[in-house]
Amino acid sequence: MTKKIIAIDLDGTLLHSDETISTYTVETLKKVEALGHTIIIATGRPYRMAINYYRQLGLKTPMINFNGSLVHLPEQDWPHELDIRLDPKYIWKLLDIKEEIELDFLATEYRDKLFINFDHRDQIDPKLFGLKEITDELELVANKISTGPNALLMKTRAKDKYALAQNIKEQFNHDIEVDSWGGPLNILEFSPKGVNKAMALQHLLTALNLDKKDLIAFGDEHNDTEMLAFAQTGYAMKNANPILLEFADQQLPWTNNEDGVAKQLEQLFLT
């Protein structure tokens, strides 16, 4: 059997709604990897909020974070590491229009740190950032920004986050990427222009001397469109945002809470 590269999103895809991975899924992915297939986490999450899942799965492969602006081998030096930064001017541009975009907070995300503006500090849920509490040291002020972040994250009170994402892209002349989170939270995430999971996977395939024809991918949300279109076979979860379906080759009959990824991999490789 040809060895496959399997790119998997986390939230809404591999993770249950309570942000856990089932024992069944962990065991299934380990069996698939033992057959020689390569499993890649491809997530919009920052490194600090994905590394525990990487360790739980026992992975040794590169990981894609921030929708592609960070491609790295966790806790190791890797000559093919990709670390793309967003021009910090967009931090201040977004804060300049914070009333117009109904901003609750804006967070600047780096591999190992973040800063958040405190205009609506009561709206900042520490769990959203993998933290126990929001401390004063995290306040976003100009003298803390010495380099551009890998990504920006904002929560808005706007009723239609998808329309807002499009409006912001147009306002900034499509010079940045704006994607939405799934679920009920009105969260938008910003990446440098041209950065997405497909771009990151192409970089990774080139670095590992692998072929796109052997790539399969699983996703559920707006930020997975390019990845599913790029893969030889792209699977949308049963719970996927309808926006994603036209980019997928197939929609799974199972949701993330039903271990859809593991069930599909079991059918493909273990039966």
Score class of each variant (00 low, 15 high):
K4F: 14
G182C: 00
G183V: 00
F66E: 07
L86C: 05
P88L: 10
T23C: 02
N52V: 04
L188Q: 03
T135C: 10
W254Q: 02
F66W: 11
K161F: 11
N186C: 07
T61Y: 08
T2R: 15
T135L: 15
F115P: 02
A142C: 01
D220G: 01
E246R: 12
N241D: 15
I5T: 15
S17Y: 09
T20I: 01
E27C: 01
N186K: 13
P126I: 05
E258F: 02
P253N: 07
P62F: 06
D224R: 03
A248L: 06
I216F: 09
A200Y: 04
V26I: 15
F115S: 02
W78I: 13
A34F: 01
G68P: 06
E266N: 13
F247K: 12
D11Q: 09
H174R: 13
L131Y: 13
I176D: 09
L14M: 14
I39M: 09
L29D: 08
M154S: 06
L15P: 00
A236Q: 02
S180G: 10
V178R: 11
H16T: 05
L57R: 08
K60Q: 14
A107N: 09
V195Q: 06
N117H: 13
R111K: 15
L228F: 09
A262M: 10
A34I: 04
D220T: 00
E137L: 06
G44I: 04
H80P: 00
L14G: 01
F105M: 05
M63C: 08
I134K: 11
M237L: 15
L140T: 06
L210S: 08
F230G: 02
L35D: 09
S180T: 14
K161T: 04
P46L: 06
Q232N: 15
S180A: 15
W254A: 01
I176C: 03
G68I: 03
E133T: 14
L201S: 10
G182D: 02
